[in-house]
Each structure stands twice: as structure tokens, then as C-alpha cells.
Design a protein around this nucleic acid. Sequence first.
DNA 1: TTTTAGATATGATATATATCATGACATTTA
DNA 2: TAAATGTCATGATATATATCATATCTAAAA
Lengths: 231, 231
Amino acid sequence: MRELPSLNHCSTCVYKNLLFGNLNTEDLNFLNESKKEIEFKKGEIISEEGTEITSFLYLKQGLVKLYKKNPLHKDQIISIAKPRDFVSLLSIFSESTYKYSISALEDTIVCSVDIKAMKDVISRDGKFAIEILNKMSKMYDDILETRFEINKKHLRGRIAYILLYFSNHIYQSDEFDIPISRREIAELIEMTTENVIRILSEFRKDSIIKIDGKKIYLLEPERLESICKLG
Amino acid sequence: MRELPSLNHCSTCVYKNLLFGNLNTEDLNFLNESKKEIEFKKGEIISEEGTEITSFLYLKQGLVKLYKKNPLHKDQIISIAKPRDFVSLLSIFSESTYKYSISALEDTIVCSVDIKAMKDVISRDGKFAIEILNKMSKMYDDILETRFEINKKHLRGRIAYILLYFSNHIYQSDEFDIPISRREIAELIEMTTENVIRILSEFRKDSIIKIDGKKIYLLEPERLESICKLG
DNA sequence: TTTTAGATATGATATATATCATGACATTTA
DNA sequence: TAAATGTCATGATATATATCATATCTAAAA
């Protein structure tokens, strides 16, 4: 974890319009004052459940996982967040401590704004509040829908789903380095690690995919689509 | 469905402080103008996914289910809402049409405020916006947590969970008329109807519960607790 | 370097759950 | 009223999944 020198002002940020597009200059300056850009190395924890919420986080670069720790040594991964996602949006407005942990799956740059400053701006700019409501609602809906979708599928369908997820939503490519371990896949789609490995091997033997360590090639994405759809 | 004559003003409503406690008189009058109280009979649909969102709903009396319709004739029940719950909070700020359906499990009275009026007030009162954010976030977190909790349990644990849920959270009693069918229990805790019935019978044979049609008596709630906890 | 721990891999087996079949009973519909 | 439909109930069976055991390979630690 390393704080980066603050080079650009929020007002000139390429991502400004994602959320701050309609803020007035005064509020934008106000938020910019507490703004920090922080770099996290792969594996580092960005925020930990139970600790105090001090900032509103925005993912600028990299990839992170949101998860809930489990005493029995197997976590529950809730979702994967990618650049442009407001990773801290879950529960920061209802709790004073994080309900979920966030850690970096790749080297990641996070933009951080003081949570109090953020709430101040929301309090005086209702239009901004509506936008936050909108973003938050979308994020939760998306997670919920994904959860239901995964749970109603059989294991093969889940593996197909997650492979297509990385291919279509994260990397926009039929080949990619999968950023999480087999065990983390298991934690994300609720099955055992052994079965993740087994079914990946199965897909490999059926020539649906090619595996080379972390590198995965989707040889027949259409077949994955149909396995995913049929559950 | 029947609109009730409007007797009391929002300012004198016993539930005012749940959300409207800090609104100024002007805004409260404004919301009150579009306010309607509507009665739904058991089984009636309160709002249907895909239809346009026109109002912000608040459950005053009764019990409802939030669910997602499934083409394959088995719905997914997302949660049960009880008096004091803001049942329409899911997705009304991110979508123009409902993502979920809501229907009455018992005779229910719903308080309805025009969604546009609601957004107007949020836009001009940021403190109110923060409260909405808070309520919404809590509701989603709760649903998500429940989902994870249910899914990691075995079927017996799920049945124990849902019995305790009705006992502790809805009826505050060890005996109650269960307001949903076996099939709906299945839709809520993601298992087959046959297994719901089977396991309820099992609990009955083990004298953990007594069943008389819809009437359920928790004879040994402590044993249910432990079955629930152990999964 | 050696040792240790973790990740990947696979097989055998146990177990949990779904599916299919059938019947009784209750409730709605014709 | 009878017929039809849905709910509750239970058993037999098939299937999906977890668990346990073991091996190899890799990466981290001593």
C-alpha cells in the first residue's frame, strides 16, 4: 500500500462524469481536498470488515474481491469489482464499520475520498444523493441477481458462468490469466475446491477450454454459453 | 385492492419517525398530498415486475412477499416484509420498472407516496437522502446476508432457520399460522417442495415441532436453534 | 539448500438432494 | 353436486455433490 502523489484534480479526472459530473465547482474542490490515490499490490487488503469506515472508495485500476470472512477458513466471495466500480458502496451508509472485506487481486489503484466529506456533499446536494442512490441500488441488484443465478445452476453451469464472466465482463477476450485461485472460484460460486478443479479438467478433456496454469483459453465459448444457460 | 379513505395526515402518523421524522412541515405536507392508503386482500399482487414504478411503498399492516417470477413455474422468493418495512426500496432508484414483484400473504395495508414527489423531497433535503440511503443499504445487506446464510446450510438447517425466522422475527411466538405454503417455503429457502414437507414431518416425528395444517408449534426451539446453527 | 505449506489434480466413496411415482385430502371450479 | 386442480404426504430411486485420501508440483519459509 502506497499513497500516490496527487497529480490531477477531480475536475480534470477522466472518470469525473461517472458520479461527479453534475457537482458544482465548490463541492468538487471540497471533495478533491480529501482525495487520495492509493496503490495496493496484489494480495493486499484494502479494507477489512469490522474496521471503521473512513473513506468512500472508487476503483481506478486493477481488480479486487469483496468478501466476507468465515471462521471455518473458507471465505464467501461476494463479487469481483473492476475499474469504474464504487467498491465501498456496500453498507457504508448503514454501518460505521465495514461489513465486508476488500482485497486486491491485481495491482490496484484506488481513489479515496473522506466519507464525512462525501456525506456533507450528499447532504447539501440532493441531485447528487439521487445519483448515489441509483448507483448503490444498481450494485446491490446486480449482486443479488448474480447470486440467485449462480445458486440455481448445477456445478458445471456455475463453472461455465464464471469463465464467461471473466471473459465477457472483465477481460473482453477468449483467453486470459484467471486472477483467482481454484479455491477462490469455489468461494465465489459456492462449491468445493475439488469440484472446481474436477470440472475445469472435464471441460479441458472435452476441449471446451485449454488450461495452462492460470492461463485459460475458451476454445468453444458457445458450448460454455449453452452449458451455462442449461444450468 | 381498495383505497382507504384518508383519515390521518402524515404529520400525525404513528410511523412518521421511521423515516419522515426530520422533514420540515412544507415537505411533509407535500408528501401527504399524494399519499394514499391501500388495502390488499391476501393473495393480491401489490406490484408486478416489469410494470412502471409510480410509488414509494411502506407496509403499515400485514405481510408480503418480494419475489422474482420464473418462467419455469417456480418463483424465487427474495424476502418476506413485515409492518414498518419499506417494501419498494429495492431498485426503485435504479430502474423505471419494478425488478421484483410484491404480493400480499395476509390482508395488508400499504401506504403509498408518489415516487416523483419522493424524489423531489430527496433532491431538496440531503439529510433525508442520507436516511433513505441508510434504510436502503440496511435492507439490501440484510437480504444478502440472509441469502448467504441460507445457502450454506443443509436442508434441515434451512427449515430450522425459516421456522425460527417466523417465530422470532414475525410472530414473536412459539406457535403461529405459517403464512406461506410448503411450496413457497421451498421458493424462499431454495429447495424442493417435497423436501420441505419431508423435513417438517421429520421434525414432527422427532417432537421438535407439532404441525396442524398451517398451524405450527415449536415444541423445542432450542433444538431448532442448534440444528440451524450446525447447518 | 531442505523443509514446509499451499495449489492443483484425480479417484473412491459416502451423503445429501432431486426426481419420479402415487395417494389422501382439501379447495376451487364447472 | 361432481370434477378438476392444488397442497400435503411418503417411499423408491437416481443423481449431484461433498468428503476423504493421496500424489504431484510450486512457492514460500527456515
